[in-house]
Amino acid sequence: MPDQPHSPTTETADTDPRAPRAPGPSPYSERLWVPLWWWPVGFTIAGLLAAEIHMGAPGLRAWLPYLLLTPVPVWILLWMSRHRLDVTVADDGTAELRVDRAHLPVSFVARAVAVAPTAKSAALGRQLDPAAYVQHHAWIGPMALLVLDDPDDPTPYWLVSTRRPDRVLAALGLPSAG
């Protein structure tokens, strides 16, 4: 009977993480920047290297290493910060996780958990399945673990670095187990 109200135990689009969602803006987006303190360290290393080269050249050529080596830490640190993690809503209304160019529809996720920074080494150590999809960044402590339920995919789970795993899981509509 379609006119009856849903009981609290009945799964609806609001409670079922596999139900289609209404299209809209990205519910979560994160750029995985390197820590701010890496920037002065990078410039200090480039400056020390330029000073070493400066000692061997007189005149105007002495300042050339500073000019040429200053962009190097900028390029390296921006390159290391290029990774993105997004939760998007597809045209059919289902949510999906996008990590760089890889994407995972939420319909294939059986369960998910936020991995604390203290449990990160265990998750990446002996317990790590070689077939798992791992997007690890050492400068980010917590991770999100998404166990897959797809018989056609040999990947058992995704393990991705994120600063706010609970918000990622909430944006996907998945309860955090654990």
Rank of each mutant, 00 (worst) to 15 (best):
A13V: 12
A13C: 00
D14Y: 10
T15H: 09
T15I: 09
P17A: 05
R21A: 12
P23N: 09
G24D: 08
P35I: 03
W37P: 05
W38D: 02
W38I: 03
W39I: 06
G42W: 06
G42Y: 05
G42E: 11
A46G: 01
G47E: 09
G47T: 09
L48D: 01
L49A: 02
A51S: 13
I53E: 05
A62F: 03
W63E: 00
L64T: 05
P65R: 04
Y66K: 03
L67N: 05
L68G: 07
P73L: 06
P73E: 03
I76Q: 01
W79C: 07
W79I: 01
R82F: 03
R82T: 07
R82V: 00
D86C: 09
T88I: 14
A90G: 10
D91C: 02
D92F: 04
G93W: 12
V99P: 02
V99I: 13
H103P: 00
A110G: 15
V113F: 13
A114S: 15
V115M: 08
P117N: 03
T118G: 15
K120T: 14
K120N: 08
S121T: 14
G125C: 06
Q127L: 14
D129L: 07
P130G: 07
A132E: 03
H137N: 12
A138P: 02
W139K: 05
P142Q: 12
D149R: 09
D150Y: 03
D152F: 10
P154W: 01
T155I: 15
